[in-house]
Design a binder for these strands. Structure first.
Length: 449
DNA sequence: TTGACTCAACATCCTTTGCTACAA
DNA sequence: TTGTAGGTTTCCATGTTGAGTCA
């Protein structure tokens, strides 16, 4: 009889010819001439089973453990969480939920894990999230929870892993879990990380994110591996009820005459090169082309370096620092997070306004201390580059100041999410976006919205 | 166990005007 | 005539992370 089993990130089919089928009849299956076995990538397991069932073929399925888990949880799902869960279940326990930061995505995942009651792997991007999920799952289900990553490699029926560790372990453990939850699932589109999705056999798959679409189009890969987006809710749909009301204020500032001169000079060098070399920039891939050219063409390299200088000038202008002073003054009693695009500006602001600073250079212990003090109210302000965008448990604030940032919609959404947790006094949140007028930053700011 | 270090991976990095070939 | 898509495979810089190694 035909048997299916997990082997090194694939589903191995033995006895295929005896069952009267050929590899071409089944999704993703290829016959290995030398070893006389047929295999499919592990992620095709669910489709493979469906195809066999449809044809009425008998087979012995040894891919996943038969283990069932009896799990209960204490959550009472909100209406929108219930709707999201139902939409995912209706799609055959596959798909992505796009929900804003702070809307309780973990709660939905916990409910899904309890509902399915099969061994589950939760994949997350950072060690910080790894620890949060592990605590959450241990408290909720009162079972031991395994961990891949952060210096630990323990496997349990419910296990939490970083994407990096999952990438390293997937070939071994890909047949151990019937359900996989990808937190911040947009990461799965990364060139290497997508293999995690391919090497796991889990038929049930849930992706969670606040921003599904990727500028490079790789969300289509994610949809292929996890399932399509089955439910989405915008910040605006939850603002006022389950999230704080908010306001985005764009503040335009002028460059100083010296900055203007330096900016025009640098930007001019860049634009001039584009004209001379007959290059048009219509998309990110055109830009990559330019980057490639800069590897061999010194003038292209100089043009890119000039572009860097122009960016620094418009993003870190004196007027922005002055404006920040007045914003901080206006929000004396508030909890403020200041975001920049460059670490050296973080340290400059930290020194000038006596703000605690968090960057990638801040050690784990110091970072924890700063965030703890921000949480208990000892600090009411903090300045950071990109560290606190995602994957870190950041205490809530009610004012965010975007001194500078990229054109990424994801980055903007994540930063906005930092001030959206409902306020105890029912108050609303404010996001200031500082933009240098008559610079490329106006376009950058438009792009992210 | 910790801290300092290296390494690899990931993400963003984008002008403002109009050329050319091809399909509807 | 009008509207629209058009070829690409390594990598200028900066910021951030996780894993691994070693003392």
């Amino acid at each position: 009889m035909l048997t299916l089993q997990f082997e090194d990130g694939t589903v191995r089919l033995d006895g295929l010819s005896e069952s009267g089928l050929s590899a071409a009849d089944l999704p993703g299956v290829e016959a290995d001439e030398r070893s006389l076995v047929a295999r499919a990538p592990a992620h095709r397991y669910a489709a493979l089973r469906d195809a066999l069932d449809e044809r009425g073929v008998e087979y012995e399925d040894r891919v996943l453990p038969a283990e069932r888990l009896d799990l209960t949880h204490s959550y009472d799902l909100r209406d929108y969480q219930r709707e999201a869960l139902d939409a995912w279940r209706a799609n055959g326990d596959r798909g992505v939920l796009e929900l804003p930061t702070g809307s309780g995505k973990t709660v939905i995942a916990v409910a899904a894990i309890a509902a399915l009651g099969v061994p589950t792997l939760v994949v997350v991007p950072t060690v910080d999230l790894l620890e949060q999920w592990r605590r959450e799952l241990e408290t909720e289900f009162e079972v031991p929870v395994g961990q891949f990553g952060g210096g630990e490699q323990t496997r349990e029926a419910i296990t939490v892993s970083t994407y990096d560790s999952a990438y390293l372990r997937a070939e071994d453990v890909g047949g151990d879990f019937g359900f996989v939850v990808f937190d911040e699932v947009h990461h799965l589109g990364g060139e290497g990380y997508r293999d995690v999705g391919r090497l796991l056999a889990a038929p049930a798959r849930l992706g969670l994110t606040a921003t599904f679409e990727r500028p490079d189009g790789a969300h289509e890969v994610v949809a292929e591996l996890v399932g399509p987006k089955v439910h989405e809710l915008s910040v605006d749909e939850l603002a006022g009820d389950h999230l704080a009301d908010y306001e985005v204020r764009r503040v335009e500032v002028e460059l100083t005459p010296e900055e203007r001169e330096a900016y025009e000079d640098a930007q001019g060098t860049f634009v001039e090169y584009l004209k001379r070399s007959n290059l048009s920039l219509n998309s990110g891939s055109d830009y990559r082309k330019l980057v490639m050219r800069s590897g061999s063409d010194p003038r292209a390299r100089e043009a890119l370096l000039a572009k860097q200088r122009a960016r620094r000038i418009m993003m870190n202008s004196d007027a922005k620092v002055a404006k920040l002073a007045s914003i901080l003054d206006r929000h004396r009693g508030d909890r403020v997070i200041v975001f920049t695009a460059h670490t050296d500006l973080v340290y400059r602001l930290s020194e000038r306004f006596l703000l605690p600073a968090v960057t990638s250079e801040t050690g784990a212990a110091e970072r924890r201390e700063i965030l703890d003090r921000f949480r208990d109210g000892t600090y009411s302000r903090v300045v950071t580059a990109n560290v606190l965008d995602e994957g870190v448990d950041v205490p809530d604030a009610n004012v965010a100041v975007l001194l500078s940032g990229s054109g990424s919609e994801r980055e903007f959404t994540q930063r906005l999410g930092r001030i959206l947790r409902p306020k105890r006094d029912g108050g609303s949140a404010t996001l200031y976006e500082l933009v240098s007028v008559e610079t490329a930053e106006e376009r950058v700011a438009d792009r992210r919205r």
